[in-house]
Design a binder for these strands. Sequence first.
DNA 1: TAAATCCTGTCA
DNA 2: TGACAGGATTTA
Length: 275
Amino acid sequence: MPELPEVETVGRALAPHLIGRTIHDTEVRQTAFRTKLDPVHFATFFEGETIDSWQRHGKYLIFSFFSGKRFVLHLGMSGSCRVCDGTVDFERHEHLAWNFTDGSSWRYSDIRRFGQLFLIESGEELPASIRCLGPDALSDDCSGDYLKKRLSGQRAEIKCLLLNQRILAGVGNIYACEALWRAGISPFAIGDKLTKKRLIVLVEAIKQVLRESVSCGGTTIRDFRRPDGSEGKFVLHLDVYGRDGEACSRCGSSIVQVMQHGRSTWYCPCCQKER
DNA sequence: TAAATCCTGTCA
DNA sequence: TGACAGGATTTA
């Protein structure tokens, strides 16, 4: 699913259609997501609420209402949103709708239903899973200094550590592979053993690849769609992800795919070094 | 720290 | 038909 650039793309595209709009009612066609949804609570929570602002932390979108309530959405592996006219037919995996008083409708579809939705009352704190997130990967708090301290004593491989949202929020499988390639760091390097100098390079690579992807509207591998239905174009700029057998664009060696703790990793064995 | 799990779809 | 898919949590 959506990693940081895809979530940012969704938030930016939705914002003009949501901010300042008032929800008239909702439709719930499916309740079984990662977080089970109570349709009655869902309906009463949103009715009459007007959206004030949105923000993103890692892969989570947080919508705030003027009332002080908040709605947190995580797109899981296959979640996507669109805004359409309220009279438009639901698509096969379109499970939720927020119908605005102006006749438009915000739809949420999620093929695999791994999405998470949290309804936060005014004054209530965010769920622990969000409070425990590491700094957003694009924020100033994400620095070589921070990573050096945070990875101290971490004996896992750096690829796996980058996927840990409690360390850094927003990086997923695609951008972990891409950032490590850009930084010339092996996915098998042990977190604790990376020098501060190399972590500074890594942080810059992470931010660079994320920013470039945001400017391309994210990466579409298969499911991801921007709210206007278009695909994320960063797929054209991937150097290693999904490119096993192809030549490394830096050194010409063959890109290799391996399974690393249950997730695919693509890397160049020649120019990505453990030390 | 690793594997299993939630679910549907696609590809080899 | 089985393996795998952009994720995160629970369990062993």
